[in-house]
Design a binder for these strands. Structure first.
Lengths: 177, 177
DNA sequence: CATGCCTATGCAACGAGTTGCAATCCTCGG
DNA sequence: CCGAGGATTGCAACTCGTTGCATAGGCATG
């Protein structure tokens, strides 16, 4: 239900084509929200027929044309309304947690390998986020406000989340060492 | 894809009926994995026709009969195979993060209210988990092993996760104070 | 020119989960 | 007896997202 609104946020930050969005959702935004290009095209089409966004054909040199989407006033209103709605908090929902809990019912060493692989992945992500932080906010949050501050704070959330994963999986592995 | 395996883990811990499972998924297990009874019945039916579980009709005094499911050898093998598979890590996926990032495009004070409501909810969950921890593991993890240790460690993960949410949302609110 | 590769957009089929509703069995209170 | 209400199981329709594939333009290389 929220991909539409995530796309509205992304397009308000910067108008873009479907594939541009897919790339952004694979990078900075997408570390906190993922979506494939198929899903993005599908939702963009619905949003366009709902009048939330409108597309402009843009010619490119050396590449096929692309359709750059921008948010309409109706889309802005829909976004503002959604932003003010309460959001239910839903639980974690992690395959890995299920495997950790069920490790006794299979090959424990195999589960530990899965956990180790995930830990390595979370280390990579954490390093990546920290690099983004250093590159984009070398002076900390002091001078930020509005959109910049919000982007900073969401990146902070990503870092906190990855640190938690690292801590948790490390604790799991040490307890089973 | 993993509800089936989450159910296998739950049933290996303790055979149960569909509604029993729904209640457990609304409680201890479900703080890390949620599922409605409809979804559980649907998946249990498929698992039964796949030969992963088998049901026994059990009469109850004062209540309708119930079907208690237990895991078959084929189900045990399927669970063991799944446990050893690698698990891709997928990103956060949080409506609230999108709202925090997009707060500039709507009524910021309304978004802050949404964040405050979520913060209160995470405080409640954190308290709940800590009570579970105190009730079920008053002596810490020292003497635990196997299934008990795993259950403890997953609860630890829940606590770490909720602490992270509390820290993050608090930081967000203070930055916009 | 033919082939392969990248960009860009999109369709179709499927799987998973949610929401709303229904049916049955049982007990309890009036 | 009758109706209310909880327990138990389940169906149907819908939304959301994934996976696999298709189409087309343009470039580079052999």
């Amino acid at each position: 239900m929220a991909l539409e609104h995530a796309l509205l946020v992304a397009l308000r930050e910067q108008p873009a084509s479907g594939l541009d969005l897919a790339r952004r959702f694979g990078r900075s935004i997408g570390f906190f929200w993922s979506a494939t290009h198929q899903q993005i095209y599908k939702v963009l089409g619905r949003m366009e027929s709902d009048g939330w966004v409108e597309a402009t054909e843009v010619s490119q040199s050396g590449k096929p044309d692309k359709k750059v989407y921008d948010v309409t006033p109706a889309g802005r209103a829909a976004l503002a309304a959604w932003l003010a709605e309460p959001t239910p908090t839903h639980a974690l929902r992690s395959d890995l947690a299920v495997k950790m809990r069920g490790a006794s019912f299979g090959d424990r060493e195999a589960v530990l390998d899965v956990v180790r692989a995930n830990l390595a992945d979370h280390h990579v992500r954490l390093d990546h986020y920290r690099q983004l932080m250093k590159r984009d906010y070398p002076d900390g949050s002091g001078a930020l406000a509005g959109l910049d501050l919000d982007q900073y704070l969401v990146l902070r959330g990503g870092i906190l989340t990855e640190e938690t994963w690292v801590a948790w999986l490390t604790e799991y592995l040490e307890a089973h060492a």
